[in-house]
């Protein structure tokens, strides 16, 4: 098991873990920066201050309880549906590629792609906001056309690692995919 610290596109520090289970089975997991107490408290404080301001203006205590509920529900929704803690990629040479993203609340979202569907794993570039970023993606084979690509599945969508990290993962993936062809 190797661990390396890289940077994401945004500049945040992310950790890449590589586990080699056997010659044809490897797992890569990218751990995104955790939720910071500073930002959490800043958001909560701003919502509550705004609510208090409204309360002073309107003299209606409903505003305060509504603010509490909004913060709670917003936090739950954020942790359960938005904030991704860890994204992992499990490559098993003869079976397929499995992508798992685990949310901060513990929910896991798994997608498994069979090896017969995988055409290749490539690094692609895309325009994101005002800059060009690189991302890793899986090309899926078109069942009707032997050389066609039916779909592009992007990997590590939420952590967005920089190119040096992607190259590491790409090399390891290609090693396993090479074994498949021989």
């Amino acid at each position: 098991m190797e661990e390396g610290v890289y940077r994401a596109v945004s500049g945040a520090r992310i950790a890449l873990q590589r586990r080699q289970y056997s010659a044809s089975c490897r797992e890569f997991s990218v751990r995104c920066p955790r939720l910071q107490l500073r930002s959490l408290s800043a958001v909560t404080c701003s919502v509550w201050l705004a609510a208090y301001g409204l309360f002073v203006l309107s003299q209606n205590s409903m505003v305060l309880s509504a603010a509490i509920f909004i913060t709670l529900i917003g936090l739950i929704v954020y942790l359960h549906f938005v904030k991704i803690d860890q994204e992992s990629l499990l490559v098993i040479g003869s079976l397929g590629i499995q992508m798992t993203s685990s949310y901060a609340s513990g929910k896991e979202n798994t997608t498994f792609i069979e090896m017969s569907q995988v055409k290749d794993v490539v690094i692609n570039e895309a325009i994101y906001m005002q800059k060009v970023i690189y991302y890793l993606c899986i090309l899926l084979q078109d069942p009707r056309e032997p050389h066609g690509v039916s779909e592009v599945v992007p990997l590590f969508q939420s952590s967005k690692p920089r190119l040096d990290c992607l190259v590491e993962v790409y090399r390891s993936c290609q090693e396993i995919l090479e074994q498949r062809k021989t």
Binding site: Y21, S22, C25, E27, L90, I92, L95, Q98, T100, T110, T111, F112
Partner: peptide, 23 residues
């Protein structure tokens, strides 16, 4: 929809063990 695999505990020299679960 599909399946998901979990890698179980490994030991050198022994075959790779996976647990197949239903997604």
């Amino acid at each position: 929809a599909s399946v998901k695999f979990r890698v179980l505990e490994q030991k050198a020299g022994k075959p790779l063990r996976l647990l197949m679960q239903i997604n």
